[in-house]
Design a protein around this nucleic acid. Structure first.
Lengths: 208, 208
DNA sequence: GTTTATTTACGATACGGTATAGTAATTCTA
DNA sequence: TAGAATTACTATACCGTATCGTAAATAAAC
């Protein structure tokens, strides 16, 4: 467990820190990390974009890697999505928000940014996995497991494969460079669901 | 259409170029591109690793971006895989080689490298799509279409979704950081196939 | 056919310009 | 007055270019 490396401002004497400065720095760092990647993200540019100067940044985070991981840690995992009672419908909603997240500007670029740094700055992808990848997978996994518990899935359905297919199809599509159709989430879930659900069963009506 | 930017050595008088030098430079460039990413790849380091000096590199490629795209172009698209007659079996073989390609050292890192440069050096991802992404997708697509022509798939099967799921599941798995099981290709194809094949039909025996 | 000039490739080295991470030295402010 | 913020700085790295000398091949002169 890596302790937070952010230098805490003690509440002692002297001028107190402006909490807005922290937020501005992290926001600028995250934006540059996503748009330019780690190695092009510069402490000068982050400071300037945040409206402060470099030593102000270094007072809070001791290095560039430190700041970058702190910025990544700001990424919140997927917000919980209320269940609709129907597994395919739940999956579509989860993937719908995933689609919005990934395909807004730089939603996908941050994945490239942490991937390419796996060798030089492995703490980035480690944290990204903890904060973003695993929570999202868990949401899908839970929907699938509860469907399985209700007997909706065929025996031996490969839930792990299903999770990877649901999420990975977005990545694969992104790499084509084509525009993502708005019905994408529905199409993916429909196809995956046919692969894991009990056959011969009328498919539940799906809301939308 | 971008013409090859490599400076061709005319066969006129003068000392001929050492063809081994070209290969060594491209190999070093590709390695650094994959391991370190584009912005950390340096012309100094490439030259040194290739056993030449910088002007020798610049005599052949006019810029760093030029060299990087030339190195990427060396990536050959998937080699053709002979058909076995059974679509699921063909898919498994294609995914099997994909698995070997992606999960050998730096097989995945190059994807991150071109992704993160989409803004600064978009020609990298453009070329990568042409040379690597599209050929691979086409192979899968062709297997699926011929299965469809033989009436093996259910009506309205979403082939595009299937292709994305087949490939994307690898990417999604990679992002978890877990080891890839050796049976992965089989599991993915099995699940996808159930989602697109005609139901009620005894599944063809799959070789292995 | 031998010799000489010409042309190109390459190594080694250096340099200009720019950019970056991180660090004093100094001023400001609660 | 103590800590926060700024300005100025150091050290380093990199891209791209230039120079100088040498190796290897062709073309021309004799």
């Amino acid at each position: 467990m890596i302790p937070s490396s952010e230098t805490v401002g003690t509440a002692g004497p002297g001028r107190p820190r402006d909490p807005g400065v922290n937020r501005a720095i992290l926001k600028a760092a995250l934006r540059q990390l996503a748009e330019d990647g780690y190695s092009r993200m510069s402490m000068d540019a982050v400071a300037s974009e945040a409206g402060v100067t470099k030593p102000t940044v270094y007072r809070r985070w001791s290095s560039k890697a430190d700041l970058a991981t702190a910025a990544l840690a700001e990424l919140q995992g997927a917000e919980p999505i209320p269940s609709t009672g129907s597994a395919p419908s739940d999956l579509k909603r989860i993937l719908g928000t995933l689609q919005k997240t990934l395909f807004r500007p730089n939603g996908m670029a941050i994945i490239g940014a942490v991937m390419v740094e796996e060798r030089h700055t492995p703490e980035l992808i480690t944290l990204f996995r903890e904060r973003v990848v695993h929570p999202r997978r868990l949401m899908l996994r839970e929907v699938l497991e509860s469907a399985e518990a209700e007997g909706a899935l065929r025996a031996g359905a490969d839930l792990d494969a299903a999770v990877n297919m649901l999420i990975g199809s977005f990545y694969a599509h992104y790499l084509t460079g084509d525009k993502m159709p708005r019905t994408w989430a529905r199409r993916i879930v429909d196809t995956v669901w046919k692969g894991i659900a009990k056959p011969g069963r009328r498919r539940a009506a799906t809301r939308r």
